[in-house]
Write a protein that binds this DNA or RNA. Structure first.
Length: 224
DNA sequence: GCCTGATCATAC
DNA sequence: GTATGATCAGGC
């Protein structure tokens, strides 16, 4: 259907994002010629893909920022009536093999979070999907304090992984960043380092931002 | 009510 | 299986 071209500048991206603010998902979907699913149970990535399309991100499954030429990663984030995030935010998969020597500076977490365009969307389940409204987008870069917190959690988690203790990590680890399963289901397996140094199998994991962290990002932008 | 572990769709 | 986009939902 209607497929906007990629924005050619950061200003153009921000202008497009501002034009979406206040619109409902139904309005946006209609403009793009997309059908609205009854709910997100079987379409968990629908909102993210809709916003991607509207803003002209290159669809696809390439492990890159959404707007590589602008150095911007796009994240939609479901919020409640008070503006608080309803869910944690997925960042990227966690490497579970050959992690010795991997440094924060070269990590995928740091790279993905260097510049993020956050698009808040009403996410409460009692609001019909088509009626949920899009909020004001926020272009964010981590403050030195936020970057230090992310780095500390990342290093602690990666230390566990490198020592073959990934099975001892839970979502409770980390102040702002957590490790959780990221797969089709619990039967999915991938190679990992075991405590005796051999190679074993475990559930694929991903890094997620905890809710208070993203809540602080929204709060610092909207000053509430 | 919140959170952690589990799960859904799709492309390749 | 891995990567993209995330939310679901039962146990606490």
């Amino acid at each position: 259907m209607n497929a906007p071209l990629p924005p050619q500048s950061l200003d153009e991206l921000l202008t497009r994002a501002k034009m979406m603010a206040g619109l409902s998902l139904g309005q946006l979907a209609a403009g793009l010629g997309w059908p609205v699913p009854p709910n997100l149970k079987r379409d968990k990535g629908w909102i993210g893909q809709l916003i991607e399309q509207e803003l002209g991100a290159t669809a696809g499954s390439r492990p890159e920022q959404d707007f590589l030429h602008l150095g911007v990663e796009l994240k939609t984030i479901p919020i409640d009536r008070s503006g608080k995030p309803l869910e944690t935010t997925y960042v990227c998969v966690a490497p579970l093999m050959d992690t010795r020597g991997l440094r924060w500076e070269q990590s995928l977490v740091k790279h993905k979070l260097e510049r993020v365009l956050w698009v808040p969307v009403e996410g409460e389940r009692d609001i019909p999907l088509a009626d949920r409204r899009i909020g004001t987008a926020i272009l964010w870069q981590p403050t030195p304090q936020q970057s230090a917190s992310l780095r500390q959690d990342w290093e602690e988690i990666m230390e566990f992984i490198a020592l073959g203790k990934v099975h001892r990590l839970s979502a409770r680890h980390g102040e702002v960043l957590q490790l959780r399963p990221k797969a089709a289901n619990a039967a999915a397996k991938t190679d990992c380092i075991m405590e005796d140094g051999t190679v074993g199998l475990t559930n694929p994991r991903g890094f997620y931002l905890k809710i208070p962290f993203t809540q602080a990002i929204l709060r610092q932008a909207f000053d509430y």
